[in-house]
């Protein structure tokens, strides 16, 4: 089962933080208060897009060829991701 990482509080809709991290080899638990990484604020499709974009050395043309989409379509996808990241930061 592919579990989805919850980002918002189901009760008050505030952004969730990480309180506990566990080593699944030796069962060591670390407690604290950590922010979630910025990229986790994106949905899985957007995260995949960013990963592929980095792999393509940041070339929209290469991305367009790989995804079989036109250049402006890929640029629009990237702009949309940038906007989401800016909103999450804000």
């Amino acid at each position: 089962m592919n579990k989805k990482l919850p980002l918002e509080c189901p009760s008050c809709s505030s952004r969730l933080k990480v309180k506990s991290l566990v080593c699944d080899t030796c069962d060591t638990a670390v407690n604290g208060m950590y922010d979630l990484p910025t990229l986790t604020g994106l949905n899985s499709d957007d995260q995949l897009f960013i990963t592929e974009f980095v792999k393509a050395s940041g070339s929209l043309k290469v991305m367009a060829q790989q995804l079989k989409l036109s250049y402006p379509t890929v640029r629009n996808l990237l702009d949309s991701v940038i906007n989401k990241l800016k909103e999450n930061d804000g």
Binding site: K68, L69, S70, Y71, P72, T73
Partner: peptide
């Protein structure tokens, strides 16, 4: 069709 074709090709 512009999702797939744009630029010089179109």
């Amino acid at each position: 069709p512009f999702i797939y074709i744009a630029g010089f090709k179109s």
